[in-house]
Computed example of a mutant assay.
Amino acid sequence: MTEVDQQIERARATMARISEDYRGQMGAQYRAHGKRLKRKATSVGARLAFIFAVNAIILIAAGVAGMVIPLGLFGGLAVLLLMAAVTIAIAIAPAARAPSEKALREVDIKSLPAKTERWLEAQRPALPAPARGMVDRIGTRLETLSPQLGRLEGREEEAYEVRRLIGEQLPAFVNDYARVPEPLRRVERNGRTPDAELVAGLQLIEQEIADMTARLAQNDLDSLSTRGRFLEMKYRDETGDR
């Protein structure tokens, strides 16, 4: 292979890695956007259900009261106004607040990834565009990590490391950035701007969450591999064909 061919191969490999990273980033952003839409739809549906339930209770109470004391025109109007007021109050009520940084340090380990993801989502609008992409990728990593945490009983050291990373260090790091005055976030300091520092730190955290997930799944991976070899030895015939 000539030097030109080698350069072409290296260029192709580089382009393939860039393309793979881009697809991964776009996939994470697409999934994160889908989750945001789903949460919004769920919130709207819950509000509508609550409005319907409260108005139904008002109508039932009015009907029972009407059997004892006739409500008349003004009574019926009062009921309608009450229903309208309740509907408006529920519709404009603020959404549930994201968990606080203190709550993340105290929440049950099994609920920690979902709570951290909600906390990160609340910080997302204040972050620069590259960091928002990293937040989406971290959200995907947390979603993958979550099922693994249900099997951490008796593995206190690993549970401590998970809690320390996503319940303490991640929020503290993002909050450190948030305290930097906005005009200074794009000013280079020690060779890097705070915006770039934020993205680099989030990349490290994302990779560490991925590594944690792999370590926690190691027993399952070993079990799968062992069972696969057992099945090959037990059921494959002498010629190696099925």
Rank of each mutant, 00 (worst) to 15 (best):
M1L: 05
M1E: 05
V4G: 03
V4R: 15
Q7T: 06
R10W: 05
A11K: 06
A13F: 10
M15Y: 06
A28Q: 07
T42I: 02
A53R: 07
I60M: 10
A62W: 05
G66A: 10
V68M: 04
P70W: 00
L73Y: 04
L73G: 04
G75I: 07
L77V: 00
L81C: 11
V86Y: 08
V86C: 07
I90T: 12
A96K: 14
P99A: 06
R105N: 07
E106C: 03
E106D: 08
K110V: 07
A114E: 13
T116A: 01
A122V: 03
P128K: 09
A129V: 03
G133P: 00
M134Q: 13
R137D: 06
G139M: 07
G139W: 08
L145S: 13
L152K: 08
E157T: 15
A159E: 11
A159S: 12
V162K: 05
R163I: 05
N175F: 02
D176T: 14
P183L: 02
V187T: 15
V187I: 12
N190E: 15
R192C: 05
P194I: 06
D195V: 09
L198S: 04
L198R: 04
A200L: 02
L202R: 08
I209C: 00
I209Q: 01
R215D: 15
L221G: 00
F230L: 11
L231F: 14
E232T: 11
K234V: 10
R236N: 06
E238Q: 04
E238D: 04
D241A: 08
